[in-house]
Write a protein that binds this DNA or RNA. Sequence first.
DNA 1: GATGAATGAGCTTTCATTCAT
DNA 2: GATGAATGAAAGCTCATTCAT
Lengths: 230, 230, 230, 230
Amino acid sequence: MNAHSFFWECESPPQCFIRQKFTRRTADLSAKQDKRSRILQAAVKVFAEKGFYNAKVAEIARKAGVADGTIYLYFKNKDEILILIFEEEMERVIAHVRAEVEQEGNVVAKLRRFVQTHLKFVRKNPKLAQVFQLELRQSNKFIKEYTGSSLKEYLNIIGQLVEEGQAKGVIRTDLHPGLVKRALFGALDEIATHWLLLKNGRYDLNQSAEEIADIFIRGITAEPPHEQHS
Amino acid sequence: MNAHSFFWECESPPQCFIRQKFTRRTADLSAKQDKRSRILQAAVKVFAEKGFYNAKVAEIARKAGVADGTIYLYFKNKDEILILIFEEEMERVIAHVRAEVEQEGNVVAKLRRFVQTHLKFVRKNPKLAQVFQLELRQSNKFIKEYTGSSLKEYLNIIGQLVEEGQAKGVIRTDLHPGLVKRALFGALDEIATHWLLLKNGRYDLNQSAEEIADIFIRGITAEPPHEQHS
Amino acid sequence: MNAHSFFWECESPPQCFIRQKFTRRTADLSAKQDKRSRILQAAVKVFAEKGFYNAKVAEIARKAGVADGTIYLYFKNKDEILILIFEEEMERVIAHVRAEVEQEGNVVAKLRRFVQTHLKFVRKNPKLAQVFQLELRQSNKFIKEYTGSSLKEYLNIIGQLVEEGQAKGVIRTDLHPGLVKRALFGALDEIATHWLLLKNGRYDLNQSAEEIADIFIRGITAEPPHEQHS
Amino acid sequence: MNAHSFFWECESPPQCFIRQKFTRRTADLSAKQDKRSRILQAAVKVFAEKGFYNAKVAEIARKAGVADGTIYLYFKNKDEILILIFEEEMERVIAHVRAEVEQEGNVVAKLRRFVQTHLKFVRKNPKLAQVFQLELRQSNKFIKEYTGSSLKEYLNIIGQLVEEGQAKGVIRTDLHPGLVKRALFGALDEIATHWLLLKNGRYDLNQSAEEIADIFIRGITAEPPHEQHS
DNA sequence: GATGAATGAGCTTTCATTCAT
DNA sequence: GATGAATGAAAGCTCATTCAT
């Protein structure tokens, strides 16, 4: 089990998905980081439960165990909390997904692993996933002003795999990678949203991952998919 | 050009997507319908531009050319406006999509037509599409209380095609129709959202439709897709 | 049974306490009067049930079976309805109470009869009484602008009896009639209000009338009360 | 002059009728109490001037020198301000009246003192008295939901005196204490209201107190009133 | 840095009144 | 006269944000 797996397998996400950026050197620094983390963790919960607009800063503060005003020492405003949750977590998610994908030897297996890893994240971090999928869209500042590279970078993991596959002749060259990446992401997103709204799932996301992967791999590979020897 | 095509091809959506339910018999009825329609049309615009929470009832009223209070003669509250936009339009969209799909002779062609029709709607009614895709999720009442059959019904158009295809041996039986329908819908939704956020499109949604259709049809059909003789 | 007794004894007050001012000459006039009456009757009910400020003009209209706007053909505004209910009814009440009181031969018996008649009215017309006692005080226009002579006139029935009694040596001359009349009226009002708020009475207002009368007659008569030969 | 007399004699009621509950220990506590007090004081004024329904929260805030929102840090809503004014003041009034009454040696003198004290309060705190008498009845929540023990307790001061008098044979036993207390209270209330509406009095409330007391004492005592040796 | 009381702009919704028909 | 759809001013209340301590 490596560093990443701890994160992904943890059953109590709040304790792990906001991490300490630097090695703690002093108790003060540590306390500071704690406070920031606690606010972000609390925000994830409240956003997930209430939605962005109905989430009250006061409630986030209460859940984080800090004063209302303290939040504004760490974040410019409510929108920024949301955006930072997204950016910081995406950074981690991207690193993790990249590492997972790299463990596979060929493009098709990498795509399959991507799909598996994406839905595993949703399963392990449902509240965070809900914030990513539903609440982010409620912030005007996010949708209209945010030109976040994180999301693009995440999508590009798929895009690059597609391009790589096209270069190797494994993936049909008549498809736009930019479209494929969005189509796959959209499919995963919708499956995940449905699972989340069903109160964390009556059905098996792992099974869904296999089906989605199958559909896309068959759909985009150049030949009738002989996955084993791409 | 039939009745439907007028709707789908119109370049000024507001004038056509809210229709008169009954043949106008008196000027009064007409005026009344006009007012209700104008409010809904105005709401679509404002919701699309500002988002649900930042949309002010006063602005909807101004855009509709009515007084603030008038809105409450036709709708119970702001949430209800959103929900009614959705319900009334979905009803139409479903009927239209069904009619389009029925014009094709086989399951695969029907799926392709579904994809084409979906993205055509987005292209022709961008603001409405944006409300469907983004703003609806901002209304708590919508997300948490609305068990809308409209959306389910829409998804079921795909679901039924999949089941039909599976029965006929055209579509792989190892896939869950419930998953396929969401995966396809999610893919289309994501493509559409991206196109909408790009300020109505630098690229060709028609082309995207073909690619998406190709991917899914290849992905879910039982044999290497010989689309022509399903 | 005379004309008055019909009014006072009626068990369904709404039908009788708003009367036709003039002999009907035409059906139109009659209809007109009906409409005005119906509005006043409806207003009494709604004011009594909801209180003046929470009474909606639209509800009065609905209960009266007329359109909202129609009310403004008969009354200047909501306050005026209240004031006119008061004035018109007080006119009748005063006439009735005077007639009752005149049937008695001496001042003390007249006072006793006043008390009895007042509480009998409350018992027979609880909604109207409630409007008189509670809702009238909610209308600013009533309290601050109304220099109604009706109420003064009603109070003066007592005041005149007191003065008459003082002139005849039956009532102590060290009391101000202006104070006695208010004290007695206030006592009756409080008893009535309590009875009304108790949902029209667990206890016997007739008995209360006798006690109140006893207290005041003893309290204000010059000699130990020999009521029989004043 | 004792602690109470300061309250009752003060010429600037607002400064005294909202008191500091605890000895101030810190400036913070003091400021907090001040703010709450200032709001209540301002509310009394505005309610008295405008009536409950026409009193605007914004005006109370302005008069109290706080922001609109601050009021909601101390009170749940407008109705609660009214109810708390009533409850907190009644508590004080009851204590004061009890203390006054206890200074007298016999039931008759106690009743007289009650009457004097009641009207003295009205004279010294006209705005508060007006709120008690007029505005409280405008709040639906007050009338319909408030089962205030304060008012009952106040009325019971009279009721207990009457019972005590009956037990001692001083007061007629054929009278219901529950009726006597309401009759006396109603009489005082009406006198007070009239005095208040006359813009704080053309006539002498002290004189009125003596007359009211005389009437009731004569009216309810068992023997021709020889007040001196009850 | 941390606090949390205070702020006040801004919102939805209501409803007495009007007026075109 | 009668209607009732339309009006639009008005106000209670919320809550993100600030700032004195």
